[in-house]
Design a protein around this nucleic acid. Sequence first.
DNA 1: GTTGAAACACCCTCAAT
DNA 2: ATTGAGGGTGTTTCAAC
Lengths: 155, 155
Amino acid sequence: MAEKLDDIDRRILDVLQRDASLSQRDIADRVGLSQNALWRRLKRLEETGIMSGARMHLDARALGLDLTVFVMVRTRNHSMEWSEGFRKHVARIPQVQEMHRIGGDWDYMLKVVTTNMAGYDAVYRRLTTGYELDTVTGFFSMETMLEDRPLDLHA
Amino acid sequence: MAEKLDDIDRRILDVLQRDASLSQRDIADRVGLSQNALWRRLKRLEETGIMSGARMHLDARALGLDLTVFVMVRTRNHSMEWSEGFRKHVARIPQVQEMHRIGGDWDYMLKVVTTNMAGYDAVYRRLTTGYELDTVTGFFSMETMLEDRPLDLHA
DNA sequence: GTTGAAACACCCTCAAT
DNA sequence: ATTGAGGGTGTTTCAAC
């Protein structure tokens, strides 16, 4: 799956994951390419699917989305069919930002972002309606200390 | 903190958080505004800080970043000074995408994205070097079922 | 890989309504 | 709020090296 990327590709991606509004002129200067050569690389990086679209970053707090909860779920049924059904169920809840099937003491972990406790309660009810979950525990974020950081492209 | 946003503002933000590469012409058509009126709203939304820059979305898997771990940390020292020092310590680790101070059985939760188990071990060592942590447990994501979803602007 | 140019789209501002 | 228009910038595709 890992595509062949050289250092320049990595630098282009790193610049863009931090600021996608830069002009090709600026990016080309930063990575030491002509605008034309950069254009060809950008096209290739798009085609391979490594870059999958620019997104505007929004400030959740400024939008009144003040509550972040990490929800741990333990279930009884562990078949893949049930898991996929559960995924679709959760995907219909827009306050869920992220969902993972995890190892350890729990089966699933969800990240929920909403306005307040009433909003979380609504998510909780929707989550548990129609699905028999063994245990559901919310870990409430009291302080977001780091968020939305760029990927480490040198890892 | 919550700014005064009408439905049109919300629709603009919703369109842009899904695709920041759209032209003002396209956005204006979608939300039913003239390009000129849209421009003024965009300027205002930028100034208030609700929109904080476009970012290119990268496919972690295509970049070989195949391992996601949620790290739960329990500490002994719970002073705010220690917490801020710990935050700065963690902020220097580029594989950490997210860090929260949480309530419940744990004190902190970190999201780590890296290449493989060796990469995670490097993060673990760096995390625990110089800081006496009571307990550190990693919940390994076996399957990312939902990720990077847009915020729910109607919550 | 590079430069230069041409055609087009987009952004921003202003004037008028 | 709207349309229309102008100048400047950015993108995309050439041709030539």
